[in-house]
């Protein structure tokens, strides 16, 4: 049984939002309601301002607090790959999970549209789905939260379950550079232009992701919550290659 995990190298991330766009296309997300986002913010005040950014997908925790609080067991930990998935058929839209998630990566979209005008009016749906986009992903699995989000439920990143779960058994790393594996790579990883994202099996000691976590001291966010994320972040070591971090690491040396 695999335990899929992601490694994001913050020193390589350029904040280009290709991952966000790929996620939106892959999963038919409403504009602005992407399961994966790069957070941009400013440090300091003009004229001493730094633009900072931080990519944030679902952490697919080993011990997810969203699963603990779900009153209907609609969100669950998939035992085969370690995915945290949503069952749209069971969700009652109570949003407990949104409150419980320390990372803010759960989405309830039945409120005012983030991006105006509301595209749901442009492509109205005649079913219980939020909208009916002209292009739809071929996969649709409400019991795993894959497909266009229905009304009245919470949705979340699936780690591209519909791709990853079809990967050959026993493969350690899903690397988009290997032609026979690239179809199984999550959308955000596959499009990452600076190759800041890596995806692999955390249960296989020799996988590339495990090596990177060990060699570059991978960090899990908010580890004090006990959620044990399966997404690791890398940063530090030598001088940061990201301009926004470079001066920080320089000042660290002093």
């Amino acid at each position: 049984m695999a335990k899929w995990g992601m490694v994001i190298d913050l020193d390589k991330c350029t904040g280009c939002q290709a991952c966000t766009t790929a996620c939106a296309m892959e999963n038919n997300r409403l504009p602005g309601e992407n399961w994966q986002d790069v957070l941009f913010y400013h440090e300091g005040t003009y004229p001493n301002v730094k633009l900072m950014w931080f990519p944030r997908p679902c952490m697919h925790c080993e011990n997810p607090s969203c699963v603990s609080v779900c009153p209907t067991k609609a969100t669950y930990k998939d035992p085969d790959g370690g995915f945290v998935l949503m069952d749209y058929n069971k969700c009652i839209g109570c949003k407990y999970c949104q409150v419980a998630c320390p990372y803010g990566v759960r989405f309830y979209v039945d409120e005012k549209a983030v991006v105006q005008p509301d595209i749901r009016g442009v492509f109205p749906s005649e079913t219980d789905r939020q909208w009916d986009p002209p292009y739809k992903g071929p996969q649709d699995d409400p019991s795993r939260g894959i497909g266009i989000q229905p009304h009245g439920v919470v949705s979340k990143c699936t780690f591209c379950y519909h791709k990853v779960s079809k990967a050959p058994k026993g493969v350690a790393d899903l690397d988009e550079d290997i032609p026979e594996l690239k179809e199984y790579v999550p959308a955000c990883v596959r499009v990452c232009a600076p190759k800041a994202r890596f995806f692999g099996d955390l249960d296989q000691p020799n996988s590339n992701v495990n090596k990177m976590i060990a060699d570059k001291r991978g960090v899990r966010l908010k580890d004090e919550t006990g959620n044990k994320p399966q997404v690791y972040y890398l940063s530090g070591g030598a001088t940061a290659s990201v301009p926004s971090l470079r001066s920080m690491s320089d000042s660290d040396k002093g």
């Binding site: 913050l10 957070l39 913010y41 440090e43 300091g44 005040t45 001493n48 730094k50 900072m52 950014w53 931080f54 944030r56 990372y103 803010g104 960090v219 966010l221 908010k222 580890d223 972040y233 940063s235 530090g236 971090l245 001066s247 920080m248 690491s249 000042s251 660290d252």
Partner: peptide, 26 residues
Amino acid sequence: RDRDFARSAFLAFGRQPPASSPQPDA
């Protein structure tokens, strides 16, 4: 909320927010 999250993430790497700003952060 997003900023505080990202800031706390950078702190997890032992990196303080840039202290180069002479003006107080509004």
